[in-house]
Each structure stands twice: as structure tokens, then as C-alpha cells.
């Protein structure tokens, strides 16, 4: 698997005494659209942070394009991987333009100001993301949906090979969820590798070509949505009874949790 984009090998990660990730190994190939699912506290966000190089494994290694993440300069890594953490906040009212321009930092010369070509790149991103109407606004005045677009635009300004997202849609309404996924699908079709943590199993099944189910820091199942989202896998990981059906339009699986009051009959 020399051409794998990410290779994770025997990774163990502890927060103080608590083991969050317990010996996981997997690879992600270029162009994959992968969802990481699992119950709360399973270690989903930790996996994203390990892939992004924010956390360093206690054992094992994470490599990007065949090179250990440790060996990358922070700027070089930011040219390859863009990551959108769960919460990005700033107390200051940057304009949308200023905010997206920060995504060009990995490319910027060590000059006082950003150069013309960086600004032009931001213009290009603003056009492709169709947010030119937000351009002069400050980010604190935006709605959740608009802000999410701007955050994504900042990631895209990094011109990355891989995009890592930690629950990008969980605080959005369904319209903005769909808009976000439309954008992600378009980017995916243009060759971007996307790895995202998702809470909503049905959204994960619908849009991801590969799902990885983790629980208690280990990989429970990994593969296409149909093989991962079986009721056995889900019940084991989440300790909850579910029914798995097939979406009549897409043919993808969808999951219905079963309330306790219908059990035991």
C-alpha cells in the first residue's frame, strides 16, 4: 500500500492514564470519502486529531503520503491536510475575507502582508463556494450555516489533498446539512480525500463511500456502508437495539433506533 494517503499503524494513544485509542491500524487511499462513526467517547475525535498531527501517538505511527507526520513542518503539513475541528471560535470580528485568507498562511511568504496571489486564491474560493454576498461581513454576524461555509472555505484555501472534519453538520438544520454535503461531494468528485466524524448514521451511510465504526478505542468494522451498518455491528457498538432498512432512492442502508418500550414483547 505504498500509494496510501494516510497509513495508521498500531497506534495507541492515552490521555493521562485513560487509553483513548487502543492499537488501531488502517489506511486511507487518495480520493476516499470516509466516515468515522461510533458512540460518544469511542475516540472518533481522537482519530481525527491523530490523523491531523495535533496529537502524537504513544505507540505506533501515522504517516501521510508515506512520510511520518513527525517529519513534516507544520506549514508543509497544512499545505496537505486541512482540518476543521468541532469548535472554531475567536473573540474577534474578522471579516469573511480576512478569515479565509488565514487559510493561505501555509503558502504565504514570511512577509508583512499576504501577497496578491494569495488574495486572488481567496477570490477563487469565494466564487466556488458561492459566498461572495458574505464577503464584507464579519464572522460574528453570520448564521451557523453561513459560518460553516466560511470555515470550510478557509480549509479549502489551504488547497489540501485531504480534508478532515469533526462533526461538521451536527449543529446545522437539514437544509444546511444537505448544502454542506453537496459541497463536500463536489469537492470529492474533484479528487479531494475527505475523512469526517459523523454522529448521524444515516447521513454517514448516504454520503460516505467507506465507514469505519469504532468503539472503546478499537475498530469494530471498516468497509462500505452496507457491510458496516448491520444491526449486529451497531447493537454491539452502541448497546442499543436498531432496525436497519434500505433507502428506497439510494439503496444505502438507513438505521432506525428502537425505543425500549417496544422491547421485550
Amino acid at each position: 500500500m505504498g500509494d496510501a494517503l494516510f497509513s495508521v499503524h498500531g497506534v495507541v494513544f492515552n490521555y493521562d492514564r485513560h487509553t483513548a485509542i487502543d492499537d488501531i491500524t488502517f489506511t486511507v487511499n487518495p480520493g476516499e470519502f470516509m466516515g468515522i462513526i461510533g458512540p460518544n467517547g469511542a475516540g472518533k475525535s481522537t482519530v481525527i486529531r491523530l490523523l491531523a498531527g495535533f496529537l502524537k501517538p504513544n505507540k505506533g505511527f501515522v504517516a501521510f503520503s508515506g512520510k511520518n507526520l513527525d517529519k513534516y513542518e507544520k506549514r508543509e503539513l497544512a499545505q496537505n491536510i486541512a482540518t476543521l475541528p468541532q469548535a472554531t471560535e475567536t473573540p474577534f470580528s474578522f471579516t469573511v475575507e480576512e478569515f479565509i485568507l488565514m487559510g493561505r498562511y501555509p503558502y504565504a511568504q514570511k512577509n508583512w502582508l499576504y501577497e496578491k496571489k494569495e488574495e486572488e486564491f481567496v477570490e477563487y474560493i469565494i466564487d466556488t463556494m458561492e459566498i461572495s454576498h458574505l464577503r464584507g461581513r464579519t464572522i460574528d454576524t453570520l448564521s451557523e450555516g453561513e459560518r460553516q461555509k466560511v470555515f470550510l472555505s478557509q480549509c479549502l484555501a489551504q488547497d489540501p489533498k485531504a480534508l478532515l472534519l469533526d462533526e461538521p453538520v451536527s449543529h446545522l438544520d437539514i437544509r444546511h446539512q444537505m448544502q454542506t454535503f453537496d459541497v463536500l461531494e463536489k469537492l470529492h468528485s474533484e479528487g479531494l480525500t475527505i475523512i469526517m466524524v459523523l454522529h448521524d448514521l444515516n447521513l454517514a451511510a448516504e454520503f460516505c463511500s467507506r465507514l469505519m465504526l469504532i468503539s472503546k478505542g478499537r475498530i469494530n468494522a471498516d468497509g462500505d456502508p452496507k457491510t458496516v451498518l448491520t444491526f449486529q455491528n451497531i447493537e454491539e457498538a452502541y448497546d442499543t437495539v436498531v432496525i436497519v432498512k434500505e433507502n428506497p432512492l439510494s439503496g444505502k442502508p438507513f438505521v432506525v433506533p428502537v425505543s425500549r418500550k417496544y422491547l421485550g414483547k
Binding site: 498531527g53 497544512a78 499545505q79 486541512a82 482540518t83 488565514m102 501555509p106
Partner: peptide, 10 residues
């Protein structure tokens, strides 16, 4: 933007 996001931006 905070420590984590700052690192992701290089």
C-alpha cells in the same frame, strides 16, 4: 482561533 486550529493552519 485557538491552539488546535492554529496548528492546523500551519
Amino acid at each position: 482561533l485557538g491552539r488546535e486550529k492554529a496548528q492546523y493552519l500551519g
